[in-house]
Nucleic acid binder design. Structure first.
Lengths: 339, 339
DNA sequence: ATGAAAGCGCTAACAT
DNA sequence: ATGTTAGCGCTTTCAT
């Protein structure tokens, strides 16, 4: 390790002529310090260029001032937008962010969560985790502050930020139905994720409400990635009677669908309509611009941070659940079916 | 703080019937431990669900197994792609990532760097920092491992990963010249950044090589953001004799240019040509698809991590500098000027 | 090969 | 209001 010769509170104590516990108290914002000593300490710490050692602070029972953020991957703009929102909000506080990428690996999630509980961070933000309920139980038992972003636990015992996934999917499907489509394909997301389940449910509900049959064959697994979305679309397009419209459970898989459609030499929206979900920035940039369901990604990050900060301030805070609204964004990828 | 009741090496020691220093040695991979005791210790730690406390480990002189990554912002896909590359490579090691966002705030960079040197992380990856040389001197004096990604220091004393910015900008400009353009505007980047300076220099060099006059008025400041790129383009397009082509110093500002051009009711590439720099994923998604200079963003992250890992393994490693190649990606945003 | 003891920099009782 | 004393969980001499 590097030859760290950073000043410690002990050095400051000497410099200021006080005991080092006084320094500690002053620096960690303790009230009852005489104004004159406080000034002496501050001056000394300034002079020596003191920077607190977070490890020591946290080891001794203080806060680490770190918020752990657990994300499945960095390859989906949907995630990075949420992280961006988290970071924005965190910037206003004096917390820093420690990022754990699990690559959708459950074992890693558990390991990371353990490390975090073990003092690495003061709280945990779980973004669309695959994490299983037992693990959340551990966090709760330890009374460790955490919030779920875009995921729910079965037992409904976690503070969480979600969006109206079911309603959004319903609207997406309804939009297509309203345009006159009757054969609507669905590219499903990762079945372990609550959002995927709800979107599927919204899709089915809309079909039912408008008396359209639900066909298992019109559902293909896109797993929220563009590659799988592509493959799933191929599957649908190769059917004898392919759908005239496709609703993809997220934008990323919609991009894969786009590619598959193009390869089939079909035009969007003339030959086939497409709706996505998320409204990541690229959705407005692809050609044709994607009609999609907007999730307030940044805001999801904001709200998550606000909740966690509240929990940190009030450990006894009661369970909270925030549901943000989604919104249909009509762009250029939908039209009535061909006559 | 939460009621952490995580097992410590002391608990393992009891369980395994050895002293806790033996546990420490076993767990931190010390060689001279009898095979049988090693097994006992490992079994006990397994049984108790032991997770090492990084704070304590690092405080006691061990590594934190954390790599600090300092980025200016999360709002540019160019940055998130590099982070993605860093993360990929880090995932293969047993290091985790602690992310510091400075929002281009110099004071923060200094504070963060100090915190990091103070034990928060074992090494530092600086992505396009605005950080000033004196600060890098401190890192070097303390012999703290760091690498610069996409930035160079004046004194050329830092291990760094860069790309052929000047050559790339030259090619971009040359591409436009070859198409027949003679009035080529330039949207400049943040002048504090080396990459911005080199791209500007490449632009000028190409003009000079092909006997085109360099006009100050054809240069506008885009600062690498889409908003400023938009404003800069407005400025160029409102000139009495506007350029017939624009080279934007990065894709993000090119997107701003795109918008400005659209508002001027001009078509790309028929009325005006546009080239970007970076090749972020959106570049291929906008309409028309953007011709640009590709930087191997992921790879920049990979190489940075590889370098830092080498430095960690060999503290005496000599200075290294890696320069990755850029590449002209021709898409749909350029054409010969109107006759 | 393993145990004992010291100490990393700090916070938090416990004193006074 | 401030000084004294223990640790937090671990690595690392120094013994044996």
């Amino acid at each position: 390790m590097p030859g760290n010769k950073m000043p410690t509170i002990y050095d400051i104590a000497k410099e200021a002529g006080v005991s080092y516990s006084t320094v500690s108290r002053t620096l960690s914002g303790f009230e009852f310090v005489k104004e004159s000593t406080r000034e002496k300490v501050l001056a000394a710490s300034q002079k020596l260029g003191y920077v607190p050692n977070q490890q020591a602070r946290s080891l001794a029972g203080g806060p680490s001032n770190l918020i752990g953020v657990l994300v499945p991957t960095l390859s989906n703009e949907y995630i990075t937008q949420i992280i961006h929102g988290i970071d924005d909000e965190l910037t206003k506080s004096n917390y820093n962010l420690i990022l754990y990428t699990t690559n959708r690996h459950q074992g890693k999630e558990a390991t990371y969560a353990a490390a975090i509980m073990n003092g690495a961070a003061d709280a945990l933000l779980l973004v669309a985790p695959l994490i299983t309920d037992p693990y959340l139980d551990v966090l709760r038992e330890q009374n460790f502050p955490y919030v779920l972003i875009d995921q729910a636990d079965q037992s409904d015992q976690s503070t969480a930020v979600n969006t109206t996934n079911r309603k959004g999917a319903y609207e997406a499907t309804h939009h297509l139905i309203r345009l006159g489509h009757r054969r609507i394909g669905f590219i499903a997301g990762l079945p372990q994720l609550n959002s995927a389940i709800e979107r599927f449910s919204g899709y089915k509900a809309a079909l039912a409400d408008y008396d359209l049959p639900f066909c298992e064959e019109y559902v293909a697994l896109g797993k929220f990635t563009s590659g799988n979305g592509y493959a799933a679309a191929q599957q649908l397009l190769d059917m004898p009677t392919p759908p005239t419209a496709i609703f993809a459970a997220n934008d990323l898989s919609a991009f894969g669908v786009l590619e598959a459609i193009r390869e089939h030499r079909l035009r969007i929206p003339e030959d086939i309509s497409l709706v996505g979900f998320d409204d990541i920035p690229q959705a407005a940039m692809v050609y044709p611009k994607l009609t999609t369901i907007r999730q307030p990604l940044h805001q999801m990050g904001h709200e998550g941070v606000k909740l966690i900060l509240e929990m940190l301030a009030d450990p006894a805070m009661e369970l909270r659940r925030i549901t943000l609204d989604t919104q249909l964004i009509v762009r250029d990828s939908c039209a009535p079916p061909r006559a």
